[in-house]
Design a protein around this nucleic acid. Structure first.
Lengths: 246, 246
DNA sequence: ATTTGAATTTGCGCCAGCGCAAAGTTCTCT
DNA sequence: AGAGAACTTTGCGCTGGCGCAAATTCAAAT
């Protein structure tokens, strides 16, 4: 999860951003080294602590971002203060790309799930990027499409599945997207509380906790505070399936 | 709801598509008459009966569409056969624009909610449209953004609100987007069954029916088979609000 | 006019999962 | 080391709304 760190963490703008930071990330992968240099020279780099907002829902979309390291949760807050997690963004993806969907303000809040390193550019450069850089637009719209698909899946899930299945699905998605193989299973690569999991699956902290406890007793998962490790993904897949019989 | 009809309905390709069909629709509104002529000359026009599929989830996205008249429901079907309605598309919007989100296949099924008139173009023209026509890309991405926002709102609603509130919200959204003022209220401008309403709000046909019956007794709505008329929108707004007290 | 099928209404019982409450555990900070 | 905060677990009762079933109404088709 750590990519090129050391003493970068304490400065707001990092003078020596290496081209290799971006060359392997889809929106930039088709570009010349020279172009990437230009892009990096215009970028601001910044480190965020765990659990802080990169941008807030409703704020003017003055910048757009590339997550170089860490994980981000995109959440929406209801008038009554409840949080709903829309999606998770893994390392290497763009975020805050309101401009890509014709918005002037951010449609949701981005919270770091871990300590994170983020590049950003002023939104006025967006059109330049789209016009000048081969593949940038295409890849960006693909990202938008993927996220839209993911959210739509959430709608379908929430409309048709039981809580137990939704939580199982959420865990499977998390280990697929951000899982880290360890000796005896796959661990979700960032701190996640029962509360977080419940906000992701439209249930309560309590129900999520009960489910995890039950699964732990059955040996499917293993979890500490803020950490969840899946030991038996297949069993979870079975649970996540709507029960045909009975 | 009817815009320029008469004898168009029985032919597959309509020879005399007038430029005025498109001039007032956002994606084309910035264009010269000459450009619109070109666009129309490449288009295929077609009429669809009520309740038929314009395209199917998972099929190759060979064409993209402009809904000239009618209403379309975008639905997804689960492995177990349940339908979930993702959104409604009103007259004057593009649909099937998989290309705009980097997809090669349609991510959902489009069903006509009424008899509809639809223009379509082969997907290979998409890049041409984006490149050549001023404002087309911008407006399209705005549409994508709006739809994404709508779906996200659905997630938040489903995660935080009671069935009663969700159904009230769905009705309010429907009369806002596709309502037709009548003498004593606002009527939803296309046939919609209790089943449809339940698929839109993630509940059952039965619960939706009960709610409508109750509201009808209170004089808030009035409904016949497949038709719903809202008499007292404000009362619905009150219901749609999370109850703060108690 | 009759049939047929789709759409709707309504009653009844039940249970998944929420709300509340309280206690236990693990981290962090001083 | 101790205090406090954050996170987690677990028990218990209750209820919103689903599942099932049956009756009714409405519309289109022959």
């Amino acid at each position: 999860m750590t990519l090129c760190m050391t003493d970068l963490s304490h400065r707001k703008t990092l003078p020596w951003l290496d081209e290799s930071l971006l060359t392997h990330l889809p929106p930039f992968s088709k570009l010349e080294k020279r172009e990437i240099r230009t892009i990096l020279d215009q970028a601001t780099s910044r480190r965020y602590d765990e659990g802080v907002a990169i941008f807030d829902e409703g704020a003017p979309a003055e910048r757009f971002f590339m997550l170089l390291d860490g994980y981000v949760r995109v959440v929406r807050v209801t008038p009554t203060g409840e949080q709903v997690t829309a999606l998770h963004i893994p390392t290497g993806q763009l975020l805050g790309i309101a401009k890509a969907i014709g918005r002037e303000i951010y449609p949701a809040t981005a919270l770091t799930a871990t300590e994170s390193i983020v590049l950003s550019w002023p939104t006025r450069l967006w059109d330049t990027f789209v016009a000048d850089y081969d593949g940038f637009a295409t890849e960006t719209y693909k990202t938008v499409g993927d996220r839209m698909g993911e959210i739509q899946n959430r709608v379908v899930e929430m409309a048709t599945q039981q809580v137990e299945q939704r939580v199982a699905n959420a865990l499977l998605r998390l280990i697929n997207q951000t899982g880290r193989k360890v000796s005896d299973g796959i661990e979700i690569d960032f701190p996640i509380t029962r509360q977080d999991l419940s906000e992701l699956t439209a249930t309560t902290l309590h129900t999520a906790s009960r489910l995890l406890s039950a699964w732990e007793k059955q040996g499917l998962v293993q979890s500490k505070r803020k950490r969840i490790k899946v030991l038996d993904p297949h069993a979870l897949v079975v649970i996540s399936q709507p029960k045909s019989d009975l």
